[in-house]
């Protein structure tokens, strides 16, 4: 039995994450929970998130998820998604500045206004839609996923890690930004694998097979 817990702190569409995992796995038990015992009993942890950072961090702290995560990452794989990834950084610019969990060194910044693409057309914020992800480092989570595959993004903020070794995937809008981070048992992405059709489902499949510890 592969026990997967999706951390529920009241932010966003957790059911689509759970459904995607159920779609690709056998002999699974998927729970959507914030209960400490349930999280400690899980073999694998998914940490999603949408919405504004201040609200997210407020709930994360109120429920003690920040402390629980620090324990969980010690001995099992953790998959951060979108605002879940951003919350793993030290600080976000959003909502006038919010301190985050700090599992990765670095901050969260907003895309500037009035960006333009190569053809001069205005680039809208949020960065919404399918963009390519370059696998800048090998990682077991990239198994059976072609380099430069397109994943579905929707975000106005992006992470700026201090250690380049933490970066395992990059995209561009129009400047290069970090699309995937990894360190030891943690793998985190800015895009939504549960909305990225075949390649996204493959990523969840890889997560169910990954036993953690990258480097």
């Amino acid at each position: 039995m592969n026990r997967v817990a999706v951390i529920d702190y009241g932010m966003g569409n957790l059911h689509s994450v759970a459904k995607a995992v159920e779609h690709v796995g056998d002999n699974l038990q998927v729970s959507v929970t914030a209960d400490e015992k349930a999280l400690l009993n899980a073999d694998r942890i998914i940490f999603p998130g949408v919405g504004a950072m201040r609200d997210c961090m407020g709930e994360i702290k109120r429920l003690g998820i920040d402390d629980m995560l620090r324990r969980l990452v010690e001995d099992r794989p953790v998959f951060g998604i979108c605002v879940g990834m951003q919350a793993l950084m030290q600080h976000s610019q959003e909502n006038g500045g919010v301190d985050c969990i700090g599992l990765f060194e670095g901050n969260v910044k907003r895309f500037p206004e009035n960006m333009a693409g190569e053809d001069g057309q205005r680039l809208k914020v949020p960065h919404m839609g399918w963009n390519e992800v370059k696998q800048s480092s090998a990682h077991p989570m990239w198994n059976n996923i072609e380099d430069n595959s397109r994943f579905y993004f929707v975000h106005s903020y992006y992470v700026t890690p201090v250690n380049h070794d933490d970066v395992v995937g990059e995209s561009a809008y129009p400047e290069t930004f970090t699309a995937a981070l990894a360190k030891q048992n943690v793998f985190a992405v800015q895009f939504h694998p549960e909305k990225s059709q075949t390649v996204g489902l493959q990523l969840y499949k890889n997560f169910l097979e990954w036993d953690g510890v990258f480097r």
Binding site: E118, G129, W130, N131, K134, R150, E170, S171, A172, T176
Partner: peptide
């Protein structure tokens, strides 16, 4: 790497 236009 460029964002694709979407067909819906």
């Amino acid at each position: 790497m460029t964002l694709a236009k979407r067909i819906i």
